[in-house]
Write a protein that binds this DNA or RNA. Sequence first.
DNA 1: GCCAACGTTGGC
DNA 2: GCCAACGTTGGC
Length: 134
Amino acid sequence: MNYWLVKSEPFKYSWADFIKDKWTCWNGVRNYAARNFLKQMQKGDRVMFYHSNEGLEIVGFARVIREYYQDPTTDDPNWVAVDIEPVAKLKTPVSLKQIKADKELDKMTLIRRSRLSVMPVAKIEFDRILRLGN
DNA sequence: GCCAACGTTGGC
DNA sequence: GCCAACGTTGGC
């Protein structure tokens, strides 16, 4: 199983919206690096859900329920989407500040490539975030 | 609101 | 194929 992190601006699509929807199609990615990670996602992979711009914290995690397919928001075959569903909310969100201050997390892609919206997360990092958030 | 990082576009 | 100009993301 692999681990990932996706970003969403909560005023566009928040964790609460995600819970309400039960699952969502993760579409609208228009960056090749991020697209390549979407394509690597497999059913059952875990996905951290991060609130960017506002919140600046990881609020919960999800799992992949459908592997990549044509992004329904465009006809351009370059772009793909996956479906994810919520697994659990973190009891305490893990903030960007905490991540930056944490020896095990300060090398995360989230810090190193701050503009990427879909990125891989190491298992150690994933477990560490769960521990901090629960 | 600013600015750094960085991806994309287009002229040459 | 290079690189300058430009646009976007996202933290501060």
